[in-house]
Each structure stands twice: as C-alpha cells, then as structure tokens.
Nucleic acid binder design. Structure first.
Lengths: 151, 151
DNA sequence: TGCTTGCTTGGAGCGCACTCCAAGGTTCTA
DNA sequence: TAGAACCTTGGAGTGCGCTCCAAGCAAGCA
C-alpha cells in the first residue's frame, strides 16, 4: 500500500489484483494455505456457487487457481476481490461496469486513471442515491406520522 | 390533512387516494380542469406510456378516469400518487409491495395500521441501504485516493 | 470397493420491471 | 374532409442478474 498501515491487507496494487483493504476481514487461513473450495467461498460470501462460476465466465473474477484435477481453489485475495465486488453491487453498479473495472485491473498500472474515473463516477451515483433516499425518508416519515397520529 | 398546512396539498386521507403532500409540486392546472392525457403525464413524470398503462393493469394506479371515448384522463391526485410511487421505487421496494399498499389505500381507513407497518418496514430498508452506501463510499474514497496519489 | 457428497461444463430457464407490437379507433389542425 | 399525431388493447418480447439442469468426473470415508 501507499504508506505503512495494516501489514496483512492487500490493496490496489495491480500485482495483487486490486483487492480491497477497507475490510481486513480476518480470513480463516494464512496466506500460502489459502486454497478454498467453491463451497467454502459460498459459506464466506453468501454468494451461490452458480454465481461464483458465472462471475468467472463473464470476466468478473481474475483467473481463479485450480487443483491438479481442475477444481477451483480460491485465495484470500480472491475473497478480498469478492468483498469489493459486493460493495460495488450494493451501489447498483451494472455488472458490465464491474467487468470493465476487472479488465482494467488486469491491464495493469497504465489504467489507474481510467479506474479512478470509473470509481469517481460510481461515487457520484452513490452520493445521488443517498440524497434520493434521504428525500424518500422524509416522505415516509411524514406518512408514518400521519398514520400513527390517526391511531 | 391532520393540521392546517398548505391548502392545495392532498395527503394520506384515503378519500383522496393517499397522494403525497411532501412535494407540493405546482401542477400546471387547477383542480377541476386537471384532465391530463397520457402523453402529458409522460412529460411530467418521465415514465413511459407503456409503464403508466402497465401500472394500471397490475393495480398500482387507482382507477384512472376516462374520456367519453375511453381515453385516459389523469388528475392532479393521480400525479401526486405517481410521485409517491416514484419515491417508493427509489427505495428498491418491489412493485408487488407497492401494489399491496395501493390495495390497502382502496380498502379505506381500517388499513391505516397495516399501511403504517408497511411503510415502517420500508423505512428500515431505506436506513439500512443508506448505511451500506455510506460504507461503500468509504471503500470508494480509499481507492480513489490511492489512484489519485499514484497519479 | 462402493457410496455419498462435491465439483465440472455448456446451455437453458427464471423473475422482475418494464418495453414493444399490431391493428385499429380518436383528436386535432388546416 | 384529409392527414398526422395520438390513444386503445392483449399479448409477446427484452435485458439484467442470476439460477438451475444434466451428465459426468473427483474426493473422502467405511
């Protein structure tokens, strides 16, 4: 990372696949022994195995490692990436944009600028959405108060 | 309305179809001459005519008036209702729940309690969503700062 | 060794919220 | 009175984000 914060956290270094440091997220196994099966990842993330495989098919997961017989083995870094994708999903960002971001990460450091622009655009969406929700909250409270006042 | 605020605003009185007072929204025509065609409503709301007709079909619009030849004529109250539905839509509330709410409004005052519960549940969803977005904002800012710092 | 459970794939299916279509009637302006 | 623009309907289609299926291989245990 930029300066010296948490020693275990991976971050936006493209050699580390742009995992997300904001959730140190205490992974159950130390680096080196982190070869999770798909069902373990299902348990950690709450996603379904179908969805995990689908993410890979559409290019949203960066090359998951395989066992000698071809079964998926996920790393802590993959888990970090999935946590970040989960955040993006909460923003309502279309999956196609996330795929674009994943592609930029694969392309390395020369895409930092475009990545930043993409995230800033997403940030604006989030801020707008929060303002909309704040408005809506006022409307809901007004009506709830009316109904509460009318017993 | 409960106390005496804005004189023009309709509100949660079921005889007035539960329109939303929170947006006084300066409708272009006074009550009595408010018989908007579907394309006028499209212009006001940003919804498509398809969507307006669909809302009616699924029970999300309360009995839109018709001209003598059967064409729709929307009132200011219909516009208020659509504005409220728009707010609910922003919360991510499923259309089926909005239809349920519309049904409760049609059933009159004895559904005040259930309407309040439905809106309070929606309110909780909104608050949760806002907290999630706030979290996400922190993650986005962290990454944006990293990319900005790396030029 | 057999048995159960888990993992693999490509491709089909689903639920939601619209979105559009075809064929025909209505309204408005000149 | 003509012509353009608008409105009607039931039903089919679309795009998104999954979700599931079938058929077969892999892993772990008695």
């Amino acid at each position: 990372m930029e300066s010296p914060p948490a020693p275990t956290s991976t971050d936006d270094d493209p050699t580390k696949v742009d995992a997300c440091a904001s959730a140190p997220s205490a992974h159950p196994r130390p680096d080196g022994q982190d070869r999770y099966t798909i069902s373990e990842v299902v348990a950690f993330t709450g996603l379904t195995a179908h969805t995990l495989r689908w993410y890979e098919r559409i290019g949203l997961m960066p090359d998951v490692d395989r066992s000698h017989t071809g079964q998926r083995r996920y790393t802590n870094r993959d888990l970090d990436w999935l946590a970040f994708v989960g955040k993006l999903r909460l923003t309502g960002m279309p999956v196609a944009h996330m795929v674009r971001y994943a592609e930029l990460v694969r392309l390395g450091e020369q895409t930092f600028e475009e990545r930043r622009e993409l995230l800033e655009s997403t940030r604006r969406d989030v801020v707008n959405r929060m303002a909309e929700l704040q408005d809506t909250l006022a409307v809901l409270d007004h009506k709830i108060n009316f109904y509460a006042g009318a017993q």
